[in-house]
């Protein structure tokens, strides 16, 4: 069974006829070819599929595509505006806050939503805030630093 839905994806209003059982993650990867969000576990435990829906960071693997009807969605691909990287993206590169890169899009989207909600997080708030995003490579230190740098820019 399929349902017709309409929503805003990275600033553009789009339509899609989706299978009811398709997850939001699968839809943005397969139907819109936005493959920045990854499926790391399919169970909401790793955060690699994190995207922002109506201002909130969500695990796209835990949402049905049909539920996206009427929402506003931003994926990692939507962070680059007019060819300019988001400050978080710049900071991740500058601080070497990535290694294999597989968790990186999800990690950045979680950080993005966190900073929108709380522009001046403490180090502890950052640690807790990204604890739903698993990274097996970095030991997280440089990720925390990269987010902290952008938070400090917010202060200034």
């Amino acid at each position: 069974m399929k349902t017709m839905i309409e929503f805003t994806l990275n600033g553009e209003v789009v339509e899609c006829l989706v299978d009811n059982q398709r997850t939001l993650l699968k839809m943005i990867r397969e139907d819109f070819d936005l493959t920045g969000a990854k499926e790391g576990c399919g169970a909401g435990e790793c955060g690699a599929c994190t995207i922002i829906v109506d201002g909130k960071a969500l695990n796209a693997c835990l949402v049905l595509a049909v539920e996206a009807d009427g929402t506003e969605i931003t994926t990692i691909e939507g962070l680059v505006v007019d060819g300019e990287l988001d400050p978080l993206q710049v900071s991740f590169i500058d601080n070497a806050a990535l290694q294999c890169g597989y968790c990186t899009p999800g990690m950045i989207m979680t950080a993005k939503a966190m900073l929108e909600e709380n522009p001046h997080p403490t180090e502890n708030e950052i640690r807790e805030g990204i604890s739903g995003n698993l990274c097996r490579c970095t030991g997280y230190k440089k990720i925390i630093e990269a987010i902290q740098v952008v938070a400090d820019q917010n202060k200034a």
Partner: peptide, 16 residues
């Protein structure tokens, strides 16, 4: 770095 932070790097599962 840029390819990884923008999500544009294609891993094998991303290849269609």
């Amino acid at each position: 770095g840029v390819k990884k932070v923008t999500g544009s790097l294609k891993y094998v599962d991303d290849i269609k």
